[in-house]
């Protein structure tokens, strides 16, 4: 490689290469030429030296060195955005959004730990903060979830919880379920693109899913609350 001299360095003595000055950096280069990639200026585009240039738009003769203020013009509002495309983050279609109950801290899920006895071993009770990852026959989600238990069935190990995100376990501590199966979701349907019928399987988008992946499941409960539907979905899969 060509010899780098202190003159060919930017001369900013910025320290971002880990050397205090361009001169000390230049001294280290012959022995360790690979250091050159540490210069954030030499590797920026093709030019080492910052180049002076004037603003290209609307340069005015302004004797007071002040920004030029001009009156705002009335914005013309464009047509509203296209209607919902009913597609998830992987561009797959779905039929409805599943929202959580507004008076609950997060989406309501019915879950079963892979070892159901752990519900008793950990003495899980309503109000406990829990974490665990859905595994296998429970949609296949790769993300560890956090939530707060709302109902506990000691006999079967089934827990109803509301998924709340990581703030609660950080603040309050938690019990770790390990792996669990997501057996069912309950929530509200406010936006749908077709009529929903009990007994049918649907693709749907849980509004709070951080991956925004569509899920599918069997609608086995449906209650009309005006324009809103209260539903329960079981037999869950992602995709």
């Amino acid at each position: 490689m060509s010899t780098i001299t202190v003159e060919s360095l930017p001369g900013l003595d910025c320290g971002a290469c880990g050397f205090r000055t361009c001169a000390t950096f230049a001294e280290a280069l012959p022995a360790r030429p690979e250091l050159l990639q540490r210069c954030i200026y030499l590797t920026e585009g093709a030019t080492a030296q910052p180049v002076v240039s004037a603003p290209a738009l609307a340069v005015l003769n302004d004797a007071q060195n002040a920004p030029v203020v001009c009156a705002a013009r009335s914005p013309q509002v464009r047509a509203p955005a296209a209607p919902d495309a009913w597609r998830d983050s992987l561009d797959r279609e779905f039929d409805f959004y599943l929202d959580h109950f507004p008076d609950e801290p997060g989406p309501r899920e019915i879950i079963l730990p892979h070892n159901p006895l752990i519900t008793r071993e950990l003495a899980v009770k309503p109000g406990d903060v829990l974490i665990g990852r859905p595994l296998g026959m429970s949609c296949g989600c790769p993300i560890t979830h956090c939530g707060v238990a709302t109902q506990v069935d000691e006999r079967t190990g089934v827990i109803v919880w509301c998924v709340t995100g990581p703030l609660r376990p950080r603040a309050e501590g938690f019990k770790d379920l390990g792996y669990y199966i997501a057996e069912g979701y309950e929530g509200l349907v406010r936006k749908k693109r077709c009529e929903l019928r009990i007994g049918m399987r649907y693709y749907f988008q849980p509004t709070m899913c951080m991956l925004q992946w569509r899920h599918s499941g069997l609608l086995n409960y449906l209650n009309r609350l005006g324009d809103t539907l209260q539903v329960r979905v079981e037999g869950l899969w992602i995709g």
Binding site: S89, H100, P105, G106, P107, I143, T144, H145, C146, C162, V163, T164, G165, P166, L167, T207, M208, C209, M210, Q212
Partner: peptide, 13 residues
């Protein structure tokens, strides 16, 4: 990045 949550669930990464 956070997990699914009522506060930040649908924020795209």
């Amino acid at each position: 990045g956070s997990a699914c949550s009522a506060n930040h669930g649908a924020q795209p990464s």
